[in-house]
Design a protein around this nucleic acid. Structure first.
Lengths: 194, 194
DNA sequence: ACCTGAACACCGTTCAAGT
DNA sequence: ACCTGAACACCGTTCAAGT
């Protein structure tokens, strides 16, 4: 790879990450290219499609959550570990974008999702064994509920930046053994729609 | 209003409702106009913008949920009433579209949302008094949690059509008094982002 | 009054022409 | 090799011309 190509790729990724964080994933390629100081055409030389550009950024962030999860597997409280993991997932809002149907078809995102599913299951299994969460809850449940909490507060937007803590608390209370009532449907065996 | 205008409006609303239900809200106006058998321009004569067209359909559906809620206020079990209300909300998936920031600016949707908030609070207050849900839960919480459940299963799409029942069960268990732990943030006083 | 399709501005994506 | 901006197909929206 030529030197200018390496530099442009770096600039592109940085600009795209910043724009996605500031304005969501509907920012135009033109804006990103301008911020990166490159031509629109160059964007498509590095990433065949806008979604693949997003996937590159997203899978990095998902792996950051995987790393956090792996730390927590060795932490003291099994129940608190699950709660902390969920909180980290909610804070990293880009998470829910990854769970979108189209996005998961990008191979990078798919791989990151599988690593995420593995660590989520480790954390949840440990908490189940410790009696910190009910016996019928799985790692997939935990991931989908992170998504649920993110979306619960989405309508309020930036008007209530800490509100997610309320719904994380509420949802987590539903995971505790004390209030457990039988669930009508089993947990999904995979997060992929196929 | 002229006779053909009345007829075209009816056809437009029917076609749009069908297309939105089948293909989500990203269907093109061209498609809707074709299905309705009218020109694209005619769509914008009836509704100034695509969002206003959606708002017309949406507010009707929200009012259907309001009606269901009003029935349930007089039903036997206060706890079951809240659960049934939430289930009705989840089934009517268009609900979460309404909670989107841009959509709520449409006046019709805003009005329907307020009616919805009122009936949700009636149901929740009754369940609180009966001890069927914890004391710190409000009608706004219930509405946001409907949204959460809808979005929790969204990633799986049509692959698991009954999965929402699992997460509604899990979330509702979090509303029960048995597992209640103090929540770190108070409930929102309004669903509007202002 | 109302309908219509051509026209406009904007998007993601492609590609011929440059270095 | 890689970069670039003009060009393309598609969108939501506007509007002059029709009835």
């Amino acid at each position: 790879m030529r030197a200018d190509a390496v530099r442009n790729r770096r600039r592109l990724l940085d600009a795209a990450a910043a724009e996605f964080a500031e304005h969501g994933m509907e920012v135009s390629i033109a804006r990103i290219a301008a911020r990166a100081g490159i031509g629109k055409g160059t964007v498509f030389r590095h990433f065949a499609t806008k979604e693949q550009l997003m996937a590159a950024i997203l899978s990095d962030q998902l792996d950051a959550l995987v790393a956090r999860g792996e730390e927590l597997v060795e932490s003291a409280g099994p129940g608190e570990a699950v709660l902390d993991f969920m909180a980290a997932g909610v804070r990293l809002r880009s998470f829910c974008v990854a769970l979108t149907a189209e996005m998961r078809e990008e191979l990078q995102v798919r791989a990151a999702s599988e690593r995420l599913a593995a660590v989520a299951e480790s954390l949840t299994a440990r908490a189940r064994r410790a009696g910190a969460v009910r016996g019928d809850v799985t790692g997939h449940d935990v991931l989908l509920l992170i998504n649920a909490v993110v979306q619960a507060v989405a309508p309020l937007g930036d008007a209530a930046p800490e509100l997610w803590r309320r719904y994380l608390g509420l949802v987590f209370d539903g995971l505790r053994p004390e209030a457990a009532h039988p669930l009508p449907v089993p947990a999904p065996r995979s997060l992929a729609p196929d």
